[in-house]
Amino acid sequence: MKQERAATDHILALTLKIGAYTAFALIVAGVLLQFVTPFGSKITLAGVLVLLATPVLRIIVAGVQFVRERDMKYALVSLGVLCIVVLAYFLGIQT
C-alpha cells in the first residue's frame, strides 16, 4: 500500500463519515422536533440536503486529492463524474 493511497482513503472515509453523521443527526432531530414545533421540518430538510450533497463533496475531495498526488488521469476522471452529476442537477431544475 502506497502512503498516498492510504492518505486518500483516510480523507475520503472522513468525508463520508462526517456527511453521514451530520445528515443522520439533523434528520433524527428534525423528525422528533416536528411533533413539537413547525421548525422541525426545516431541520429535517437541512438533513436531507446534507445527505444529497455528501456524494458530490466526496467526488470533489477525491479529485483534489488526486491532483495533490499528481495523478492527473484520475483527477480528470473525478472532474468528468462531477460534470455529469452537476449536469443532472441543472437538468432536474429545468425540466
Binding site: 463520508l16 434528520i27 428534525g30 423528525v31 416536528q34 421540518s41 429535517t44 430538510l45 438533513g47 436531507v48 444529497l52 455528501t54 456524494p55 458530490v56 466526496r58 467526488i59 463524474v81 455529469i84 452529476v85 443532472a88 442537477y89 437538468l91 432536474g92 431544475i93 429545468q94 425540466t95
Partner: peptide, 26 residues
C-alpha cells in the same frame, strides 16, 4: 451513493421528492 444522488437530483428538481421529505426523513 454518487449514482443514486445523480438521479435523485433529477427527481428532486421534478418535485417528486420535495413533497416526500416528511415520509423520507423517518
Amino acid at each position: 451513493g454518487v449514482t443514486a444522488a445523480t438521479s435523485a437530483y433529477i427527481y428532486w428538481g421534478r418535485g417528486d421528492m420535495k413533497t416526500s421529505v416528511a415520509i423520507a426523513a423517518p
